[in-house]
Design a binder for these strands. Structure first.
Lengths: 338, 338
DNA sequence: CTGTTAGCGCGTTCAA
DNA sequence: TTGAACGCGCTAACAG
């Protein structure tokens, strides 16, 4: 009742050796069908359950990959986890999910803990506090692979799976241009952050490609919170420039911008679209007319997980580390239908 | 490089025995300060990291509790996990998060896996498919405690931490009455589900308490999807009854109902409130004026986790299993301020 | 096809 | 205070 039965218990009950039991339970071909059946029956009867701790210790592999994200409550990350798990489970791997809550200290502890538990690989999307990479660089000369997804550090030797922000910005802008917009503003984010810089570059590239001249006064920079979108929109309107559309570098600012236009009861031509980056359900719910550039968490998770499995199985981390870029998806919603 | 150092490696390097190293690393008082320091220094130097598999195997405890939820992407569950982790970490426990994706088969596998990995306790919110409890009842005569939170099974012997739906329904209705509403409709859910039944009962109890007569025609039952709220509202309005407010049994239906009233451009008196059950950010974003009855995932997680730790530490599961009811919180939002 | 032996890395006796 | 020896439960090597 209290003490769980072991292979020895079932071996003793059958008058055979525990190694035979072990083999049978692992469905080894080196055990007769008959004894195998007897063993399985006995195991069932005693309510035997393999002790993974012992098994993993002995085999020196855990069939487990660790995943570290800032917060699982963010839709992007939870769908990434979905993608990771799906691939991992199909390959017979378990997944341990941990959240750093954007704290470097927690992230360090978590990574240490996962290593101490001997995970076979590590997928990580780093916290915002992660400027120091020591705890990750330490993995370099271990034999467990590390792959960054979405939020990465630039450490040569490790692979990355990232959103193609440049292409996203390009596609968003191109979409607006294709709808006939000529004067497209851009609400951009902090340019120290690569993602915002890349989205901005994509915007400029699309303008150029279409022979539209880029004008500095159409760009308003902020921290892209909802409040910022609101303020940016006010600033933009105050300039009295001709405007056909605004390309917002994220979803929150787009929502803020929309609210402001509504409040002012501005007549917005059909061609105007607010484009944000996010697949949070919020953005699609609040403004059914909002066109968004979605980043598929599921997809990024799936690709990252596949890459991880490949590295685990081949035991080969590419020397320089490869970077895979994942496409975004432009979602045009139709507010005219219910 | 490849093979991780063990206590033997550091023992050998120092010319002492591995058992001393073990004691030192566990900060046992039975080791001299001096040797302890030497050992710790050497451990650091070699990049030693305790093998938890071996340690746990030996100690027969893992300091880990398993958590099973239908999906981590649902805000209620991810905040419950937050609450669980916070309490657990403070007590020095690790948490393994798993999602059943509402599938019984997955749930069974997960529970089996967690047991095989020898978690010290199990917190579970069961899937919608979980009608058969065999995989959970099997835990009865094991010594690892099992506690249900939110979605539970009625298995005597296990404890539950649940939302007080009756009180929630009561409070919501009382709130509307206090604001002066006399004719309060109710959009209710499937009465086979306890939560909806309890919310309905709370609604009736509040009416009775305030000497308002309950009328069947004010109740519209559905599956409470957004679309259902929309339809229910149409049905309700078609009855041409006097209506001051509607108490919706969940958030989605409330959103659907709101959309319909907007579409019809119905003038809604100030006193009208739509009250749903959810702390999903969606409901608060889409309708800033929506008053909601929030269930605190964080709180339920915290309480469940505390109860779990208590049961683990005392090694005593209450014979009959206790049920703790968690209060909901009425959130009245103010749409007048920005 | 099965049994024997020997560890995986750690923590805990028991002596010294 | 430290060392020697054993065992947690399982699997892998080698016999037979």
């Amino acid at each position: 009742m209290n003490n769980k039965p072991t292979i020895h218990d079932i071996a003793k009950a059958l008058g055979i050796d525990s190694s035979t039991v072990s083999r049978a339970l692992n469905d080894s071909p080196r055990v007769t069908r008959a004894t195998k059946d007897k063993i399985l029956a006995k195991a069932e009867e005693l309510g035997y359950q393999r002790n993974m701790l012992a098994s993993n210790l002995r085999k020196n592999i855990t069939n487990t990959i660790g995943v570290v994200v800032p917060r699982i409550s963010r839709h992007f990350f939870s769908s990434a986890i979905q993608g990771i798990e799906e691939t991992a489970y199909l390959a017979g791997y378990n997944v341990i999910i941990c959240q750093s809550l954007e704290q470097l200290e927690r992230e360090k502890k978590i990574v240490g803990g996962l290593l101490a538990n001997r995970v076979d690989g590590l997928l990580i999307s780093v916290s915002m506090e992660t400027m120091n990479y020591d705890h990750l660089e330490a993995l370099k000369n271990s034999n467990i692979p590390l792959i960054f997804f979405d939020r990465h550090c630039d450490i040569p030797g490790f692979s990355n799976v990232l959103i193609d922000d440049f292409k996203g910005g390009y596609d968003a802008t191109q979409h607006l241009i294709s709808k006939g917009c000529k004067h497209i503003a851009h609400f951009s984010g902090p340019q120290e952050l690569e993602i915002y810089k890349n989205r901005f570059e994509g915007y400029k590239a699309a303008l150029k490609r279409n022979n539209l001249t880029f004008k500095e006064e159409y760009v308003i920079s902020s921290r892209l919170m909802e409040q910022d979108g609101y303020i940016s929109m006010r600033k933009l309107l105050a300039k009295k420039l001709p405007i056909d559309a605004v390309f917002c570098a994220n979803d929150l600012s787009a929502i803020g911008a929309m609210k402001h236009t509504k409040e002012l009861q501005i007549k917005i031509p059909d061609a105007i679209a607010f484009v944000g980056f996010s697949n949070e359900p919020v953005s699609s719910v609040i403004e059914p007319s909002l066109t968004t550039i979605d980043q598929s968490g599921f997809e990024i998770g799936k690709i990252a997980s596949e890459l991880m499995l490949k590295q685990i199985l081949t035991k080969e981390t590419p020397q320089k580390g490869q970077t895979i870029l994942i496409d975004t998806h432009l979602i045009e919603r139709n507010s005219s239908k219910k």
